[in-house]
Design a protein around this nucleic acid. Structure first.
Lengths: 236, 236
DNA sequence: GCGCAGAGTTAGACAGACCTAATTTTCGAG
DNA sequence: CTCGAAAATTAGGTCTGTCTAACTCTGCGC
């Protein structure tokens, strides 16, 4: 079972993520092709191979979609755990900023040993979230979940603490950091332009209001409580 | 030029190491096959491909051997720098022992970004050697070299400080660590059995004498002076 | 309930890196 | 100077993971 290729690990991770975005519905070939940056035909080919090899990691029904088996999900969560621990480690131990760690982690996640994973987790004090607020699955595959909602969904006057930010776009992350909009920052919606216009957000600490596009506010999540990251005092 | 495959990087590194062991003579197909753990035919194939692609990284003469061009050597040294910095980092920052880091570094060396390399080097204070005493090439490719000789070559009564140990065999490294025979440990040859028999070595600190096989003493190097590692106080 | 757009799959190729088996080259011993 | 063993290369295959192009489902609009 061991030593899956980086490609296979990436597919399992992608299936997991696509399913998560769609209430566990089967992942479509196109969604996976998009996420992985490969042609649709490549996805079909890989899914056929994955479904055909022991132990079965995915359940694949042609033309319908693909889902993870328990074994497949276990591996996907291991990879995600690696990814997020590495992101946390690079920021906490080596001073990377939150916009620099994603690509690095995408490479490293397939390569670190269980021993290294474990040492990193120990060093960090077993954090529950990565630098963008994504929960880090435990070794057993369980998550700390949070009551959070996208900034877009808040009404004027509502607010909370930034609990999660998408890590896909480093540009955006750099911009947000520069505004002071970081994890656990207190924010409040002061104005919502009509017709899906920009949302004006007050960042409490700096007491500044910024207009953010929907594209941005869709990917910023806010919770009513500050989050216990489990890694604030990690500096060892 | 960028993004060479891990396989290509491994070949360049292997050619460099083989040449180093043979006074810069061209590396033979067999030596490379041994070092890389692949069949001879695979080496021939890869050398042909390497020699045929721009920019030229190797100079290959069929039936004769292969050497690195300046460009090829530069890359080999980058990979070796990665490898040794990673070994140093894992021991200093994450508490790995010197017998655990080699395999981990073999994987990581192909994957870390220049940025991560640079942060690691900064953290460590730009060390000149790895945990086994192998010199770490600088970014520009220069080495700190030491006046050292294999333990095997010392006469009875001679001694010095352990300056370098092969990192190939973790079993052996664990054994040596257990004896207290670590980097910069003071040692002295007390007896040499005839016919290439074991060498008796006194480890000064513990004041214990151990009989070491030639296989071991060939791979332990001793220098007349303690070595400035450039990383003793790295703990940050 | 039919047809068509778009999603999905099959077919066929290719590049990278490896293998085994067969052949060729090199070189030292006699 | 010739012969054979060891070293190296060629020949031909396999396995991954990708691609493009061509075909085939599926389900929505009417």
């Amino acid at each position: 079972m061991r030593t899956l290729s980086a490609a296979v690990e990436d597919y399992l991770k992608a299936i997991y993520e696509v399913q998560l975005e769609n209430d566990s519905a089967p992942a479509s070939t196109s969604a996976l092709a998009d996420k992985l940056g490969v042609a649709r035909a490549s996805v079909t080919g890989m899914l056929k191979k994955l479904a055909a090899t022991e132990p079965t990691l995915v359940e694949y029904r042609p033309y319908y979609g693909v889902g993870l088996t328990a074994a497949g999900q276990k591996i996907a969560l291991e990879v995600i755990r690696h990814h997020r621990l590495i992101e946390a480690y690079l920021t906490d131990a080596l001073g990377f900023s939150w916009d620099e760690v994603h690509l690095e982690a995408d490479q490293l996640e397939h390569v670190i040993s269980e021993e290294l994973e474990s040492r990193i987790a120990d060093y960090l004090g077993h954090p529950s979230v990565d630098p963008h607020g994504h929960p880090i699955p435990s070794k057993e595959g369980s998550f700390a979940s949070a009551a959070e909602a996208p900034l877009t969904s808040l009404e004027v006057g509502e607010g909370g603490y930034v609990s999660r930010v998408s890590d896909r776009d480093s540009e955006a992350l750099r911009y947000l950091a520069q505004l002071g909009l970081k994890l656990n920052a207190a924010v409040e919606v002061t104005e919502k332009a009509p017709f899906d216009g920009p949302i004006h957000v007050r960042i409490v600490k700096q007491d500044e209001v910024h207009a953010l596009s929907r594209r941005l506010t869709d990917e910023i999540f806010v919770a009513p409580e500050k989050r216990e990251t489990g890694r604030s005092g990690a500096k060892r």
